[in-house]
Design a protein around this nucleic acid. Structure first.
Ligand SMILES: [Zn+2]
Ligand SMILES: [Zn+2]
Ligand SMILES: [Zn+2]
Ligand SMILES: [Zn+2]
Lengths: 163, 163
DNA sequence: TCGACTGTTGAGACGGCATCTCAAAAAGCC
DNA sequence: GGCTTTTTGAGATGCCGTCTCAACAGTCGA
């Protein structure tokens, strides 16, 4: 398969380098998974990845999807996000850099936002507590504009509980 | 049981008011659960609540623990927190107000912190996106001071991925 | 090129946590 | 106390993810 190789995006190159650097093998499943993730935009869960691969004629088992998604996370190419404590979703790390999420409780819509100021505050807080930060998760659950409008016109406002 | 009633704390009163206001019944299980949660300090998971109740001679089923913890959350008396996407932990809402969490990946220790500045930023961000905030979850996963010290003296620093 | 060595895969069992089911028990109401 | 409706308990079920292990397939050296 020569032409397939030629359009291999740089993310796949990166993944292959990561694999070789670790003494791991380059397999068909890993390449297909990597290509599929970077073909998708937005957030996608493990089962959707599984289905997408099957649809693309590269069926792999669920176990393989999970294993290699973890590998992509370790390679730093993909983020694993848990919104609302349920099923984890994955998204490729895009050039823009880090972002956080607002998730609508009603329709499930996910809105992304970037706040360098928050990142700076977190760094400062960790330093103050001598805590070595690995990863931060910041999510806001609530109602998106559309759902808030259609919800209850004269509703009692939700208290803004922080948990 | 007369004296038991007399020391009933105000949180239990609040819960009872919440129940009556919803047309729900005041049961022994609900009162025991409420008392147990407010007797505990810090973070406690559903099974710990279950065990604590059994130990206190108020055994209830796991299903009842889950159902009524949800009720306490709805009443706004208890927060449900998911750290690292694993087992949910509960904590009573204490007077001091909102706080967020740092969780150690190695020993599981939970450190709380308060940052009004972050709260203000979040409010601002929600306004900018016309998003009606209900609840925010901010967690930092990493290594606590003790674990970071004992981990790897000349370790390669973890990249601070934001997810 | 051809094994041999070793990492990887697939199918399904398994696990933790949470929710659901439904008959029996208890709360509220008169 | 008797009636109605909610709540409970025990266990089944479900979801999401991980594990097991035999078969398979990269990789590499001969
Ligand atoms: Zn919405
Ligand atoms: Zn995102
Ligand atoms: Zn620690
Ligand atoms: Zn806390």
């Amino acid at each position: 398969m020569p032409s397939q190789q030629s359009i291999r995006p740089r993310e796949e190159e990166q993944f292959l380098r990561f694999l070789r650097g670790r003494g791991l093998r380059v397999t068909a499943a890993r390449r297909a998974l990597c290509r599929e993730i970077f073909a998708q935009h937005g957030h996608i869960d493990a089962d959707q990845v599984h289905a997408a691969l099957a649809g693309a004629g590269h069926a792999v088992s669920r176990a393989t999807v999970y294993r290699n998604l973890d590998l992509l996370v370790e390679a730093g190419l993909v983020h694993k996000v848990r919104l609302g404590g349920h099923r984890a979703v994955f998204e490729h790390v895009h050039a823009g850099g880090d972002h956080d999420h607002m998730a609508c409780r009603r329709c499930g819509r996910i809105v992304e936002f970037v706040s360098p100021a928050i990142g700076a505050l977190l760094t400062e807080i960790c330093r103050a507590h001598a805590f070595d930060p690995g990863e931060s998760r910041l999510q806001i659950l609530g109602l998106c504009r559309a759902c808030a409008a259609s919800a209850r016109p004269a509703a009692l406002p939700l208290e803004a509980a922080r948990a």
